[in-house]
Measured scan of single mutants.
Amino acid sequence: MSIQHFRVALIPFFAAFCLPVFAHPETLVKVKDAEDQLGARVGYIELDLNSGKILESFRPEERFPMMSTFKVLLCGAVLSRVDAGQEQLGRRIHYSQNDLVEYSPVTEKHLTDGMTVRELCSAAITMSDNTAANLLLTTIGGPKELTAFLHNMGDHVTRLDRWEPELNEAIPNDERDTTMPAAMATTLRKLLTGELLTLASRQQLIDWMEADKVAGPLLRSALPAGWFIADKSGAGERGSRGIIAALGPDGKPSRIVVIYTTGSQATMDERNRQIAEIGASLIKHW
């Protein structure tokens, strides 16, 4: 067993022997301040990774656009098919120029040779490549099948209805392509620590998230040296922004954090800054 596999296998073990965790309302004060600064709703939840206990939450059962955070769930569904012998990570998928959609920095470079399922998941999570996500959605049967996968996990809230990039439209009061912070946090925890996926697939999923290259201005910008984070960000229309993450000190994750916002007129930089400040408060009061 590799060191990384050992780390993920012992996530519940280490967490069980940690000192009790206590909620700190100071972080919620910052979440509410972010709402004021952005002029928009902000949803927040913080779960203990081992027990699933909610440590703090704000608007945990209000719907927010998922945006690209759905790509972690998508690759979880792909990995479940791999575990069941219905898919192979090494299978190569070929596609054409007509398949390319807006923001496809990886797939646009491989029109000639195609990409493997493993490479597509890596591109979808680490670079948020939209064509990679659409190609992977095709392998599982489309958005409705991802929703069905989530329902089978016990998540009857999260739903995907459309493809990239239309799913980022974020129309107010439109339930399409949305989740709730509580539902997303619980589902992410199941994917990373539950028995739904094999140990190898859980490790692969967290490795992809740990290698995320496009979430630097968010929670990662607030992390002290030595902290662990595996995350996936999302951005959408109407001032929408979000991030889902597993993080913790001492090089291992111990909490799940989900943050979503929508309806702001603020710039992307300002949305990023507010999420980073929430992260800084979380870490300060850990």
Rank of each mutant, 00 (worst) to 15 (best):
C121T: 03
W227S: 02
G248Q: 01
R273K: 15
Y103N: 06
L137Y: 09
D269K: 12
F13C: 10
G248W: 02
V42G: 01
A225E: 14
L120Y: 02
K213Q: 14
I283H: 05
A266G: 13
D250G: 13
H24I: 10
L191R: 00
S68W: 00
H285Q: 10
D113C: 09
A40N: 08
A200Y: 12
E166V: 12
T267A: 13
R41S: 09
A133Q: 00
R220W: 02
N134R: 04
L135M: 10
L28N: 07
E62R: 06
R176N: 08
G90K: 15
A16M: 15
R7P: 11
I229Y: 04
L47M: 12
D129I: 00
C75Q: 01
G216Q: 13
A9S: 15
Y44K: 00
R255V: 06
I11Y: 11
K144W: 09
I171H: 15
L79T: 02
L218R: 02
G251N: 15
F14Q: 03
M66V: 14
V117Y: 03
T186E: 15
F228M: 10
N173F: 13
L38H: 07
S221G: 10
V78G: 01
L167T: 08
M184D: 00
L146N: 02
E195I: 03
D36H: 10
D83V: 03
A133P: 02
R162K: 07
Y95A: 04
S233W: 02
T126D: 07
P65K: 04
F17D: 03
D177Q: 01
A16I: 10
A211E: 14
L73H: 07
S80D: 10
P12I: 14
L111P: 07
K30G: 05
P65F: 03
D231Q: 05
V29G: 15
K284H: 10
T147H: 07
L38E: 06
E164R: 01
Q204M: 15
L38V: 07
H94C: 08
M209N: 00
E210S: 10
R189E: 09
D113T: 14
R59I: 02
A9T: 15
Y44E: 01
G39I: 09
E164A: 00
P253A: 13
E210H: 10
L19H: 15
R91G: 05
L136K: 00
I93D: 02
I45T: 12
S281W: 07
E237Q: 14
F228A: 09
L218E: 02
V214A: 08
R202V: 09
T179N: 00
S201T: 08
G76S: 11
I259S: 01
L89I: 07
L38K: 06
D177N: 04
E108I: 12
I125C: 09
T193D: 09
E270P: 03
Q203T: 14
T267W: 05
S57G: 11
A246C: 12
V78M: 09
R255Q: 03
P25M: 10
H94D: 11
G251Y: 09
F13I: 11
L137I: 09
E87H: 04
W163R: 11
M153P: 01
L49T: 08
I229H: 02
F6C: 10
H5E: 09
L73I: 14
L219M: 09
A230C: 14
M153D: 04
A77N: 13
A40Y: 03
E195G: 14
R118D: 12
E87T: 08
F13V: 11
I206P: 01
K30N: 07
P249Y: 05
P253E: 06
K30P: 03
H151S: 11
M67L: 09
G141Q: 07
L137T: 07
T27F: 04
N50L: 12
A266E: 12
E102D: 15
I243M: 06
L100F: 09
F13N: 03
L199P: 15
Q203P: 02
A276Q: 12
D36C: 14
E87Q: 08
E108L: 09
D99W: 07
Q274I: 10
L135P: 00
A246K: 03
H151Q: 13
A211L: 13
Q265R: 13
D177R: 01
S122F: 13
R92C: 07
T267R: 11
G251P: 08
Q204Y: 09
G263D: 09
H94I: 15
G236N: 06
V214D: 02
V106C: 09
E61P: 01
T158K: 00
Q37F: 14
D174V: 04
E56R: 09
V258G: 05
D250F: 12
A235C: 03
E169K: 13
M209Q: 02
R271C: 08
A235K: 02
L205A: 03
Q86N: 11
G154T: 05
N152K: 13
E270G: 08
T116L: 08
T116E: 11
V257L: 09
G226D: 11
D83C: 04
D161H: 07
S240F: 03
R159C: 06
G85T: 07
T107F: 02
W227K: 00
R159N: 07
G239W: 01
R59F: 03
W227G: 02
S51N: 12
T126S: 13
L197W: 03
A170Q: 07
A148M: 15
G194N: 10
G43W: 00
E175W: 13
G242M: 02
R202H: 08
F17C: 09
L146R: 00
A23S: 08
E119M: 06
W163D: 08
A246W: 06
A183S: 11
S240M: 03
G142A: 04
V72N: 01
T179I: 01
E46L: 09
R81C: 05
D161C: 06
F149K: 07
G76A: 14
S240Y: 03
P253W: 07
H285R: 11
K284T: 14
G52R: 05
R59Y: 04
P105I: 07
L79F: 04
G52F: 05
N272C: 04
T138W: 10
S96P: 07
G43C: 04
Q203R: 14
S128Q: 00
E195S: 12
D99M: 12
S281P: 03
S68F: 00
R159A: 06
M66S: 03
Q265T: 14
L150R: 00
L282E: 04
H5D: 09
R81Q: 10
L135F: 06
L282Q: 06
G43Y: 00
E270S: 12
T179V: 02
I229G: 02
A215W: 02
R92Y: 10
P60K: 14
T193V: 15
P105W: 04
I259D: 00
E61H: 15
Q37D: 15
M184P: 00
A133D: 00
Q86Y: 13
I11L: 08
S128D: 00
A183W: 08
G85L: 08
K109S: 14
S221E: 10
A170H: 09
T107Q: 01
R81P: 00
T267I: 09
N152C: 11
L205V: 06
F70C: 09
D33Q: 15
I11Q: 05
S264M: 06
L205S: 01
M127E: 13
T147G: 10
I54C: 09
L79Q: 03
T261H: 06
G43L: 00
I140N: 04
D250R: 13
L167I: 13
M268A: 09
I45K: 01
R7V: 08
M268Y: 08
F22M: 10
L120C: 06
K32T: 09
I229F: 03
G90Q: 11
S201Y: 05
R271H: 07
Q86K: 12
S57M: 13
P65Y: 03
N98Q: 15
C75V: 13
M1C: 01
L136F: 00
K284A: 13
K53F: 10
G141A: 06
P12F: 13
D174S: 07
A16T: 11
S201E: 02
S254C: 14
A9G: 11
T193W: 10
V42I: 13
